[in-house]
Design a protein around this nucleic acid. Structure first.
Lengths: 333, 333
DNA sequence: CTGAAAGCGCTTACAG
DNA sequence: CTGAAAGCGCTTACAG
């Protein structure tokens, strides 16, 4: 039973109680296997008796490990409170928790870049997971240059030797395409995501290729509801006879749905609609949205795993981990 | 301009470059005011030139400060992804960010208690903010006993000398009561929260007192949608003529709304409904819910502030910080 | 397999 | 106002 000692117990005291050197006590604490069994037992008991807990600062000073990594989310307003964010945090935590590594939460604002770099340089952070970094953000490149462990949440637009985790975006587009084709729709259009993002590009490519229609009508949105509405209106004007639309995000699908309703078309009878993300918006839609789902929590866990691996071995080669999307069948298509 | 030195720069080197002792260099770094202006400038320049960043582990070893606090959320599944959670994180971050204190995120599971206590004991964490701790949870008491800085998110049910932040719950109940009274409703009922929580008790008390009706019909729910539905059905059976209901949570109000609709009553024409929390559920309701709002983000910021104060001075007296609720007027009442 | 010793990079009484 | 020195609590070559 640990003594409720008011004084802080150090390894020194454990060594004294166990009748060994501080070095040996340290070895037992750190699970070095070469220590004699009897001695090990004595040290164990001493630890129990004294209620010893190692001082992480002292340890970090020599090991140069903080046992803490940062999770950097876009900007305050955007993701916090979004269920997507909750899934990311949960996924990361499932792998960090057991390892005792601290999850330090940050949002990307003016000083976050400096703080992250500073914390990494001074060894206050071992690595960082970057969620949805803007393509113009210099942070990933800076981190790579300084050789800090980092994992990003999607394939970078500009080629960069960085480890990332992503959903198979083209496959997601293809999933939507095949579903609409199976419904015998043949006047299909799409509201694509921003073409300066890989998600935007790849979902469009995958969708178009699976359809085998190089002339597929499409407009570009920016993933927001508003852009979905605008895009839908445009498409309706140019192709009044359309009978199916794939929106590269649930929010855009939601915007499209509203415009379709205003135009007097019913979903899915007149027009089938498929979204992307399986966000909370998908369920809020009327009818609920058929959509392409990415396994966010699993992906986040994988990001944490890949990061920890880099922390353990800085020479771990850069890798990409790509997850298969699935189609969630609901009322809209 | 900082040299991009490959070697880690220590205070030792700064001192050498500036031609002073390590002690003096340290004083400049830490903003000690008694240092001669000329010397201070020299050290500043040396820091610039060398690109020095202090090693937090070394500093922590002597100052016994981790400059990190934990935010402990209920359990994985419940809060993550809830907008409420996003507001809490944001509020805490607004005060932590500028001070450079790390926000370590944890959820309450089997080993969280041990981890928090361990991290606090070994100085890896300076303090902890506890959100919605279960009343049976021994953690708050343990933290107090070991004199660790802690702030909890609502008044504890069992008296405990702990600093907390809460909304004025009775005032919230009163707000709902006065609003319904102003609508000339006179067959008012309420679905109260769990009576083993202070929120549950106080919202009921405030509501009943403001109404001045000791015989107010009420049932007890557990804040969930399901319990709201069950409670509404019960009340409807006993008081078919009711014309207003106050639910102590938006979720319960949502459950009540469904039951009212099934019973053929229209809201707010036949029955006025008021909820509590102003959660996302309030907006998802049809009609959107009139509800009592608590300033979650401000409250979270205050929790962080109170925690930091305790960290700075362990003898800071225990305090309570109570925020006024407001009524958000929407369609349901 | 074990121990004596050096060293990680700071801060802070204590003198002067 | 400044510096020499001790000390924070560990880990880890290096001998033996």
């Amino acid at each position: 039973m640990p003594r409720s000692s008011s004084k802080r117990v150090t390894l020194e005291e454990v060594a004294r109680v166990a009748g060994v050197s501080r070095a040996t006590a340290s070895r037992v604490v750190n699970g070095v296997t070469t220590v004699d069994e009897t001695i090990r037992a004595a040290v164990r008991r001493a630890i129990e008796d004294t209620g010893y807990v190692p001082n992480p600062a002292a340890r970090a000073l020599v090991t140069r490990r903080a046992d803490a990594v940062a999770l950097v989310l876009p900007e305050e307003s955007r993701l916090l409170g979004d269920p997507f964010f909750g899934q990311v945090v949960r996924g990361v935590m499932t792998v960090l928790g057991p390892s005792g590594v601290h999850l330090v939460l940050m949002t990307m604002d003016a000083n976050t870049r400096d703080q992250v770099l500073g914390d990494l340089r001074r060894g206050r952070l071992d690595g960082v997971v970057l969620i949805h970094t803007d393509r113009a953000d210099p942070l990933p490149r800076l981190l790579i240059e300084e050789r800090h462990p980092v994992v990003v949440s999607s394939r970078p637009v500009v080629p960069l030797p960085v480890t990332y985790v992503d959903v198979d975006q083209p496959a997601g587009g293809a999933l939507a395409a095949r579903h609409l084709a199976s419904l015998r729709r043949n006047r299909i259009v799409t509201i694509a995501g921003p073409q300066h993002t890989t998600a935007g590009q790849d979902r469009l490519i995958g969708f178009r290729d699976a359809l085998g229609d190089p002339d597929l009508p499409w407009v570009e949105g920016d993933f927001t509801r508003e852009s979905g509405a605008v895009g839908m209106a445009q498409l309706l004007r140019a192709h009044p006879g359309l009978d199916a639309v794939f929106a590269a995000s649930d929010l855009m699908a939601q915007g499209a749905l509203a415009v379709l309703r205003e135009s007097g078309r019913s979903v899915p009878a007149d027009v089938a609609v498929v979204g992307f993300d399986d966000s909370s918006a998908a369920l809020a839609c009327d009818p609920p949205l058929t959509t392409v789902r990415q396994p966010v929590e699993d992906m986040a866990a994988e990001m944490a795993r890949l990061l920890l691996r880099q922390v353990d071995d800085p020479d771990t080669p850069v890798t990409a981990s790509v997850f298969p999307p699935t189609l969630v069948h609901r009322g809209s298509a």
